[in-house]
Simulated assay, not measured.
Amino acid sequence: MNVLVIGANGQVGQNIVNLLHDSEQHSVKAMVRKEEQAAELSNRGIESVVASLEDTVEEIISAMNSSDAVIFAAGSGGSTGSDKTLLVDLDGAVKTMEAAEKLGIKRYVMLSALQAHNREKWNEALLPYYAAKHYADKNLEASSLDYTIVRPGGLLNEAGTGQVAIAENLERGSVPREDVAKVIVAVLSIDHSIRRSFDLISGDKSIETAISSI
């Protein structure tokens, strides 16, 4: 499967790209915003394309062309304002869904946020971010795409354990970015994860076992 990773230069995105690059099952194209990022990827033998989520749908279609699946792992980042959150995490995400539908790409995996579907559980310090994720996910659910929405808890920069908890609703918790990336890559080829969404934190089950329970 030829997989386009949107947000490939982000911390989770980099993990996803590395896993797909090493995979015997998939190939990867990394979507990045800067030429120097593309050059670094090219030096490692990784295909890339330079595009922005603030581009038009037609420009995103050009970047997405020849892909069989899309992973959305992009975000405006904690240093930007609510305007960028709206333009990237919400409108940018929706534009990629529209592009995938126009190209006839069915498989789409969304990196969301823990309890984004449940307003009563949103982190008070990140309300614009959660609102953007909530409505991006809603749009994805209403689309024709074969989606999976992965909603991880607090993201950690430590080595993955391969042990996770997956469920429709989980209490606050954290999870290494490496494990989030492994779950996202794993669900790509698991048909029973299609049109499903779930929370994800560290737990006591292997990734394979946890995914099989959704």
Rank of each mutant, 00 (worst) to 15 (best):
N2F: 01
V3Y: 03
I6Y: 06
I6H: 00
G10W: 04
Q11K: 14
N15A: 12
N15S: 11
N18W: 09
L20P: 07
D22W: 01
S23A: 06
H26K: 07
H26F: 13
H26P: 10
H26S: 01
S27Y: 00
V28S: 11
K29H: 04
A30H: 11
V32K: 00
R33V: 03
K34D: 03
E40I: 03
G45N: 10
I46A: 03
E47M: 11
E47F: 02
S48K: 05
S52Q: 08
S52V: 01
S52L: 05
D55H: 11
D55T: 01
T56W: 05
E58Q: 12
E59Q: 14
I60S: 02
I61F: 07
S62W: 10
S62H: 13
A63Q: 01
N65D: 15
S67K: 12
D68S: 11
S76C: 12
S76V: 05
S79P: 04
S79V: 14
S79K: 15
T80E: 08
S82V: 06
K84T: 00
K84D: 13
D89K: 03
D89N: 07
D89I: 08
D91I: 15
T96H: 07
L103P: 09
L103H: 09
I105M: 11
V109R: 03
L111V: 08
L111E: 01
S112M: 08
S112L: 12
A113S: 15
A113Y: 12
A113Q: 10
A113K: 04
Q115F: 04
A116I: 01
E120R: 14
K121Y: 12
A125Y: 11
L126F: 14
Y130L: 02
A131W: 07
K133W: 05
K133T: 10
K133M: 06
A136N: 09
D137Y: 07
N139Y: 15
E141A: 04
E141F: 01
A142T: 06
L145N: 09
T148S: 04
I149T: 06
R151A: 06
P152N: 00
L156G: 02
N157K: 14
N157C: 10
E158C: 07
A159H: 02
G162L: 01
Q163E: 14
V164N: 06
A165S: 15
I166E: 02
A167Y: 07
E171G: 14
R172E: 12
S174H: 14
P176W: 06
P176M: 09
R177H: 08
R177D: 04
D179C: 07
V183S: 05
V185T: 13
H192P: 10
S193E: 05
I194D: 03
I194G: 10
R196Q: 15
R196N: 13
F198H: 05
F198T: 10
K205R: 10
S213Q: 13
S213P: 08
